[in-house]
Structure formats: C-alpha cells, structure tokens
C-alpha cells in the first residue's frame, strides 16, 4: 500500500530515537487514530542542527517523521515552520489517501517543538502567528474486520 520510498523510510527511519538534552520537544497526538509523535530538536542560532523523533504510530507516521526530521535539519526555525505535511508527502512520493493525516502528525509535532522553543525563549515567530497548540482536525472512517 505504501510506495518504495515510504517503505524505505518506514523500515529504516532516519533520526529515530532518544535525544539527550534537547533544546525543544514537541508532542502531538492524532485525534484520528490515537497515535502519538514526539520531536526533539537541538537549536543553535535559530537553526535546527539536530532532530530526533519518537512515535507510536503507523508506517506513514514513521516515514513522515523520518523525512520531516531530515528536512528540518539545517533550516532556520522560520524556514522549518514553512514546511507542511504536503512537503513531507511530496518528499515521500505520495501517501495513500487515508494515511495523509499521519503526515500531519509530523508537521504538528515539529510546530509544537518550535513553539516550545519559542515559548521558552520568548521568540515571536511569524510562522507561529496562527498556531494554536490545541487545534484539532477531523476525520471519520469505519472499520471492517475479518
């Protein structure tokens, strides 16, 4: 169901695991599937110099986290905030429709981490202007079992 690039990032995720003494941590849980993502950042001069993720999430979530952490590294906080799940999906070469929301998990975890940093350091970031740490998104689907 996933393309090869997704599978590659999923089976061998980059930047997965614990980070010691992170400068910022963002947590985001998906209201759709109950999954959870944590992104930790090292930040120097408003540039993301290291990123790690931990997730309790599906293949799409893991792959999205893998490319998300890859993509934000080396970027300034403002640049990182411009990245959306759309960019991660493009980088992954596409995700199946019902798995799009999982990439939002990565996007939001990144935002939460940067927000955490901004809060701690009293930064006013343009990209966080409309950010609401309690924002939700909707999804409705139904299971079948065999």
């Amino acid at each position: 169901m996933y393309n090869e690039k997704v599978m590659e990032h999923f089976m061998n995720p980059h930047n997965a695991g614990e980070m010691e003494n992170p400068d910022a941590v963002g947590n985001y849980g998906s209201p759709v599937c109950g999954d959870m993502m944590e992104i930790s950042l090292k930040i120097e001069n408003n540039v993301i110099v290291d990123a790690k993720f931990k997730t309790f999430g599906c293949g799409s979530a893991i792959a999205s986290s893998s490319v998300a952490t890859d993509m934000i590294m080396g970027k300034t906080l403002e640049e990182a905030l411009e990245l959306t799940n759309k960019n991660f999906i493009d980088e992954l070469g596409g995700l199946p429709g019902p798995k799009i929301h999982c990439s939002v998990l990565a996007e939001q975890a990144v935002r939460h981490a940067i927000y955490d940093y901004a809060q701690k350091h009293g930064l006013e970031l343009e990209g966080l202007k409309d950010f609401d740490p309690n924002k939700d998104f909707d999804h409705d689907d139904e299971g079948c079992e065999v």
Binding site: C33, D141, G143, E145
Partner: peptide
C-alpha cells in the same frame, strides 16, 4: 479489526 489502511476505529 482494522481493514488495511482504511480504518482508524
């Protein structure tokens, strides 16, 4: 319970 990728219940 989940039917492949389509289900999140």
């Amino acid at each position: 319970s989940a039917c492949s990728s389509a289900s999140f219940t």
